[in-house]
Amino acid sequence: MSTVLDRIDEKSQARPPRMQKARRRKPGRARLYVIALVVCAMYLVPMLYVVGVSLGGPTASGGALFSDGVHPENFLNAFQSADFALYFANSTIVTVVSSACQVALSCMAGYALARINFRGRGLVMGGLIALLVVPPEVIMVPLFIILTKFPLLGGNDILGAGGGGLLNTYFGLMVPHLASALGVFLMRQFYIDLPDELGQAARLDGAGEFRIFWQVYTPLAFPAVAVVAVLAFQGAWNDFLWPLIMTRSNDMQTLQLGLTVFFQQDSTQWNLLMAAVLIISIPVVVLFLFGQRYFQSGIVAGSDK
């Protein structure tokens, strides 16, 4: 187990720096640091500015952020001035459930495609690779109609008429994020590199196929699971167009939607808006930083397809 993890870590981290060359080119180093600092400033200055606005008074502008003093209570006020607690709960439910489902389905299918030679494997693999490029926006409108006319759900009759189907339900919000071709593909790429011997040994010990999948190989796949989980989480948490068309009432809105409404309603204060922006970004940024070392190797693996 440790060997596999070590290998991934090695891949994910920068290769040992080319020290020799670096020493030879000493005069250029200072210039490199200046450029690097400029690049970082392009990112840090706007981010810190937003933090500044979120702590300032309602009339902050241009250079004068704290002319009305510092207001940490903005964060509490922002959270209360719209139904953010409710939106937070909605986003959390939709994101956690759909990510969990996506991870589980990706593991199962990825494992089978990598390690089991069943009939139709080539077809499934080809289909998945073709679907990797389908833009989610393309299928929004038809998927919306399919889900609202889904037979026998949400008051619909057997022909799919009469009710709202999955419109305005948690399940409806989750649907596009329940599975993804990319997730399956990434898991397959990972499982395929694991040694055959583990499975053979377990089989000799009398383990069934599902146990080999679940107890032998999947625990080794944690780095890939982390990548798929972060991608799924980000996709669902940050989604905007789908919740925009799939919700009908405020109590089903997600954070991204609630934030847009907060922005568009008359007379919102910029400081509260920026506080809200920071609050809703924290979970996904933290998750990103947490999963960064796996993630970077994951997206690179994805680029090899």
């Binding site: 199962m108 299918a109 089978a112 139709g120 399956v184 599902f210 999948f213």
Partner: peptide, 10 residues
């Protein structure tokens, strides 16, 4: 087992 594992995702 392979078919069973791949079916839900498909």
């Amino acid at each position: 087992a392979g078919v069973a594992l791949v079916t839900p995702a498909v």
